[in-house]
Design a protein around this nucleic acid. Structure first.
Length: 450
RNA sequence: GUGGGUAUAGCUCAGUUGGCAGAGCGUCUGGUUGUGGUCCAGAAGGUCGCGGGUUCGACCCCCGUUACUCACCCCA
């Protein structure tokens, strides 16, 4: 028997909820395009070989197979097998390499698409969800200034959404790695993985991990933890790091880079960005700037926007295409906006006016009225049956349509606002609803700086 | 992938040692030949997740299974 109920982890919104989601997508698109990011879309599938080339999240990847193929065991090991993409960065890297000859570098694009991950769902974590990515990719090299820019664009985009306060927590891999090397810890990836757990398991447990699993001394563990606890909203983190007395060329490079991001952000997006030296990021392709974003008061939800700098995710022969990009978890945000009612839609249908029918013969005249309204951008439906007016009004009320149009046998027009009950004579050639009634509005309960 | 909880009407949930399947909300119809919301009356709607077992008899007890859900893991 075919399943009809909803599948966990594959969210589907009701029309009223979808209005909110579309508002989020429209807002992001507007901000991205204001900053010169163009749109592309990549196919939903990649080859397994392509997807697993970087990062090792194979368990999360949904494979794609034909139902008619009976031996699915062979497909798993076949690098040419198809699978659904689990993020937009890896497919984008592939796209850049394939189309490098047609693109102007540095290439900047935004991409808003569904991605799939085979994980156990729970609140804020779906198996099918929408990401909104912006990236800038260079040919051979990409000036660091783009790291700064992309953080500012994202801060602006998130600020325009109906969500609470957020913080972009920024770090730099060079800084952390340089520091760890400077104190004699060479397995920098391992240290980063442990440090990443700081918030969850606490300083003592992390220190223990560092000693037992990475062979760090007590002094090394303490130094690594001291670095990770540094958090500043301005560039004072530089002095705090220097005060720890560790020296390494990579550390210097990272300090300078992070300083630039934070300096620009503290003046152009004050309060939105914080230097947080505990941020590590799981994916191993990041090489410099790394970002995670939390909603203040909703830290449990996890990061709503992450990304960073990757030096060689895409390469073609000896050529590499370094990039920097951030990814907004649209579905995670929207599900939170809806469950916490940060914003609601004023109605679930685009329709602003329902044109009633006087009798069954008046359908054509009603269509003429509707056409006149639509010609001026007013979303209009015509009743399908000449029910009693009470029933036709009720139909509009149920759907949230704010206005009902009446045309009597003599051709005189009246329009009724069914919320107030006010009914006035109107001319279909000129009558216009109030701006806020023209289309569904998203009403924010939390302040959005539009 | 690991562990806990749950599964009865569209939704939220009751359901007595194991003895006729229930409520509220929602939906639909009607309330004197054309203006909704309140109110009144009525109706429709269920393979009690699925499969087995125990029993004269199972929504209820037992086993299995699937799904949902929460936590872990990981991440947007």
């Amino acid at each position: 028997m075919a399943r009809t109920a909803s599948l966990s982890g594959f969210p589907e919104w009701l029309p009223q909820e979808r209005v909110v989601e579309q508002h989020v997508l429209d807002t992001l698109r507007r901000v991205f395009e204001l900053h010169g990011f163009g749109s592309i879309e990549t196919r939903a599938v990649e080859t397994v070989g392509q997807l697993l080339r970087k990062g090792e999240i194979d368990k999360e990847v949904y494979g794609l197979s034909r139902l008619q193929d009976d031996d699915d065991s062979a497909a798993k090991s076949d690098p040419n097998a198809l699978a659904l993409h689990f993020d937009l960065t890896v497919p984008f890297a592939r796209y850049v390499v394939e189309n490098a000859g047609y693109l102007a570098f540095p290439f900047r694009r935004y991409q808003m698409q569904k991605v799939w991950r085979g994980e156990r769902p729970q609140e804020g974590r779906a198996r099918e969800f929408t990401q909104a990515d912006i990236d800038v990719v260079g040919d051979g090299e990409l000036p660091f200034r783009y790291d700064v820019e992309i953080v500012l664009v994202i801060a602006e985009a998130l600020s325009a959404l109906p969500i609470p306060e957020f913080r972009l927590r920024v770090n730099n891999r060079k800084l952390s790695e340089g520091f760890y090397r400077g104190i004699g810890l060479e397995d920098t990836a391992g240290v980063l993985r442990s440090i990443d757990k700081l918030e969850k398991i606490g300083a003592e447990k992390v220190a223990e991990l560092l000693r037992t699993e990475l062979g760090a001394t007590q002094e090394q563990a303490e130094a690594a933890l001291k670095l990770a606890t540094i958090q500043t909203t301005d560039t004072s983190f530089v002095e705090q790091v220097r005060a720890l007395g560790v020296e390494h060329p990579l550390l210097e490079e990272g300090l300078t880079e992070l300083e630039q991001v934070v300096a620009a952000a503290s003046s152009r997006a004050p309060g939105k960005v914080v230097a947080d030296l505990s941020i590590a990021r799981g994916l191993d392709y990041y090489t410099g700037t790394v970002v995670e974003t939390v909603l203040v008061g909703h830290e449990q939800l996890g990061s709503i926007c992450s990304g960073g700098r990757y030096e060689s995710l895409a390469s073609k022969g000896s050529k590499t295409f370094p990039g920097v990009g951030l990814s907004i978890g649209v579905t995670r945000l929207v599900s939170r906006i809806l469950s916490q009612e940060f914003a609601t839609a004023s109605r679930s249908v685009p329709t602003a006016v329902l044109v009633t029918l006087n009798d069954e013969d008046s359908w054509s005249a009603a269509q003429d009225v509707a056409a006149q309204l639509r010609a001026r951008g007013i979303s209009t439906e015509v009743a399908a049956k000449a029910d009693k007016f009470g029933k036709q009004i009720k139909f509009a009320d149920r759907r949230g349509i704010p206005f009902v149009w009446f045309t009597d046998a003599e051709g005189a027009h009246q329009v009724k606002d069914i919320r107030s009950g006010e009914q006035v004579a109107a001319d279909p050639a000129v009558w216009t609803p109030a701006e806020e009634d023209l289309r569904p509005q998203v009403i924010a309960r939390v302040a959005a700086e539009v």
